[in-house]
């Protein structure tokens, strides 16, 4: 996925300014930044939930947005999966129905549909919870459902917005393990957004530091750690 010189402002507020980044195939990019820096907006721009003012976005080989050509591909056609900050699980659907809903939207019906649901449930260890509603699930379980929903459609890009913010230490660790395992098994590029550096360790190879809508520094974790560009970067890596 490639984002090239994206601009987005809401009224007078500049949310994202001249931002570019790249995520390779099957790679994971972590975006680190304080709250309000525009990380969520960035994810929404990639997903297509917001329309940038200027720039270009590519997913795979397709240009999904280009201000030069006036092109905009709507979110449902971008094959992007997203795990939202507050999870946004549908209260009126069971776990199974969440996954089924996704598959039906991709026109996967009948026997195929059933098979894929079971696969996804197994992948995320949700088989025993398939008939439960979100209100009956624990934080960690809800987390897994959110991920299952995002992955069910076999997306090219997976976006995660502060996925660990609602979990305790133990669950956070567990999540990291399972997440890495998933990445090994699946063909998906990941963009992982957080304000907590510790979360990115061992999960993303590359990170980008974001502040007030711009990327301050990007590269491998070890590189940035050794050569922080400024005080802000230093602070955030602590």
């Amino acid at each position: 996925m490639r984002v090239h010189r994206i601009y987005k402002s809401f009224g007078k507020k500049n949310a994202v300014t001249d931002l570019s980044l790249t995520v390779g195939k099957n790679q994971s990019l972590g975006i680190l930044g304080p709250s309000g820096c525009g990380k969520t907006t960035l994810l929404r721009l990639i997903a297509g939930l917001e329309i940038p003012d200027k720039g270009e976005i590519r997913i795979g080989n397709k240009v999904v947005y280009s201000s030069k050509n006036g092109k905009f591909i709507p979110p449902e056609k971008r094959n992007v999966g997203m795990v939202f900050q507050d999870l946004a699980l549908w209260p009126h659907m069971t776990v199974r129905e969440h996954i089924g809903f996704v598959l039906k939207s991709k026109k996967i019906k009948g026997m195929d549909n059933k098979k894929k649901i079971e696969e996804t449930l197994k992948l995320l260890n949700l088989s025993s919870l398939s008939e439960s509603y979100p209100k009956d699930l624990s934080g960690g379980e809800k987390q897994r459902v959110a991920i299952a929903r995002a992955l069910a459609q076999k997306p090219q890009v997976l976006l995660l917005d502060e996925p660990l913010s609602n979990l305790d230490q133990i669950l956070k660790r567990k999540f990291k393990e399972e997440f890495n395992k998933l990445r090994k098994d699946l063909d998906v590029s990941t963009v992982y957004v957080t304000h907590n550096f510790a979360e990115l360790e061992g999960v993303s190879e590359n990170i980008a530091i974001m502040q007030e809508g711009r990327i301050i520094q990007s590269g491998k974790i070890s590189e940035i750690y050794d050569n922080p560009k400024n005080e802000f970067v230093e602070k955030i890596l602590d």
Partner: peptide
């Protein structure tokens, strides 16, 4: 967020039909 999550799968009208109205 509930509508956004569905928006990744369906156009606006589909979201209204399948998520908004049941809610």
């Amino acid at each position: 967020g509930l509508e956004d999550a569905a928006r990744l799968l369906y156009p606006q009208v589909g979201v209204m039909r399948r998520v908004t109205i049941p809610l």
